[in-house]
Design a protein around this nucleic acid. Sequence first.
DNA 1: CGAGTGACGATATAATTATTTAGTCACTCT
DNA 2: AGAGTGACTAAATAATTATATCGTCACTCG
Lengths: 207, 207
Amino acid sequence: MSTIEPSPPSAGQRGPVEHGIRDQIVDAAEAHFSRYGYGKTTVADLAKAIGFSKAYIYKFFDSKQAIGQAICVQCLDKVLAAGEAGMAEGKTAAEKLRRFFSGIVATSAELFFEDKLLYDIAAHSAEERWPSAMAYMERAEALLKEIILLGRETGEFERKTPIDEICEAILLVMQSFMNPLMLKHNLDDLPEAPTKAVNLVLRSLAP
Amino acid sequence: MSTIEPSPPSAGQRGPVEHGIRDQIVDAAEAHFSRYGYGKTTVADLAKAIGFSKAYIYKFFDSKQAIGQAICVQCLDKVLAAGEAGMAEGKTAAEKLRRFFSGIVATSAELFFEDKLLYDIAAHSAEERWPSAMAYMERAEALLKEIILLGRETGEFERKTPIDEICEAILLVMQSFMNPLMLKHNLDDLPEAPTKAVNLVLRSLAP
DNA sequence: CGAGTGACGATATAATTATTTAGTCACTCT
DNA sequence: AGAGTGACTAAATAATTATATCGTCACTCG
């Protein structure tokens, strides 16, 4: 059973990896980005918030975008954590799969409605293929694979199709709801649509 | 066996429905939009192309956007026609489904690469939920339903799941590749990804 | 009457200018 | 040496102005 571990130090960082100041920056960034948006927040604002000069920020991050990525990682971690929590609740593999996705979708949608400005960063991150978004997909795939393997062991799922093809295909299918970029276009048919999609996926997994 | 019939008169039209001038406008629009793009083409350009005044255009179309929709309908008709052609080639229902989607995806991708400017109109149409895009999805669903029903008759496909749920789910799944808006973000993993998605769909249809 | 238009106001787009902001570097202070 | 910064430039963003375009309407002409 994997647990969401703090993501590895993202690209774009600088200087001491473990450092109180870095955390302060990230906290200030989360607060500011969430309230005013990424675009309207200046690096100087963050500097002022933590009581240092702007130049000092750049001892810890390569660029403003690197800070954005750090925030993005936080968001996506939360989404994945919800997926993993759902996964843990499910008894059978099928149930795990269902809850994994419903956790992800619910959390993403919540992010969209409750914290639009942070969500926008995530969407931007997906659009620009930031490492944060890539990592998100990879970790989702790893979790998914875990579920599928479990289902195969317990005999719930078929075993003929190559596992990697299955995982890729399922992710592909669920992307419409877990990729922030795409979710945006499918908001109206929440929450029925993802449920239907998962149903289809589960039918495809039947032995 | 349905054949793609000319789409019903779209919204935004005016005056005589069947009229040589209307066709001239559409032809000129296709040429101009394709060469210079929707944004860079002015209604006056179209008027000049057909040798009439700008005001006359508005005897046939409500707005420039209505002309855009007409062009969009043409594009999407072509895409669906490719899908239907593929469908006709397939022997079994599964084969029809495969070719239906590969026809659609191939034609959409071709549109994207060879006629980017027209493609952009289609994407815009999907984004803004123009009737043209809605009609496209509806007609795709109708064709898909035909295939599924056939497969059920021949015993290729399972019969338990409500047909409407199946169709909706499949469309949902394939949207990543047939919706111009989404296709844009999935271009890199063509053509394998849609194939994998269809494989998944077919597994889900197994009796 | 019906095919077709010039001239016009409101709105959108483009071009220009003015202002902010990202990011660096030489530097200070402890 | 290492924590921290003011002052600076190139690039981006915002504000402003100028221009083009959409869409309508009263109108002409056959």
